[in-house]
Design a protein around this nucleic acid. Structure first.
Length: 137
DNA sequence: GCCAACGTTGGC
DNA sequence: GCCAACGTTGGC
């Protein structure tokens, strides 16, 4: 199993919106960036991901699971863009903030730190474990 | 609200 | 195929 991180502006699509979709999950649509799309194409059913709030709150707030592999993005007719479906698995009891991540030596190589603009990104098993520990998961 | 970083577009 | 212009993202 691989690990990922999904970034969203809470004002547009937040953790509470994701939770409301329940086990059915929802398309992670709207991505118009090749790198992010390519990562989604690599995802497999059952892969886990962090749900990150960008902008104002800047923290990892939840854990999601890939519940459908890459398929055409229903929000566009442009066949370049694919997306996966994800569903909420569990909240992170103590949200892990960007500040915490930046100040933790074990997390200093995270894509989140190095390329803050990438909206879908891979997370290593070590980073996953560390953040779960910090978050009280 | 500003601005730096980055990706994409389109003219040449 | 290069590169300038432009738009968007997201941290501060």
């Amino acid at each position: 199993m691989r690990y990922w991180l999904f970034k969203s502006e809470p004002a547009t699509w937040g953790w509470s919106d994701q939770l409301a979709k329940g086990d059915a999950g929802e398309e992670w649509d709207g991505v118009r960036n090749y790198q992010a799309r390519n990562f989604m194409r690599e995802m497999a059913l059952g892969d886990r991901g962090f749900f990150y709030h960008s902008q104002k709150s800047r923290a990892i707030v939840g854990i999601v699971e890939v519940c459908a592999e890459a398929h055409p993005d229903s929000t566009t007719d442009d066949d370049r863009w694919d997306c996966v479906d994800i569903r909420a698995i569990a909240p992170v009891p103590n949200p892990v903030t960007l500040d915490q991540i930046k100040s933790d030596p074990e997390l200093s190589d995270m894509v989140l730190v190095k390329n803050s603009r990438l909206s879908v990104q891979p997370v290593t098993a070590e980073e996953w474990q560390r953040i779960c520990t910090l978050g009280g998961v």
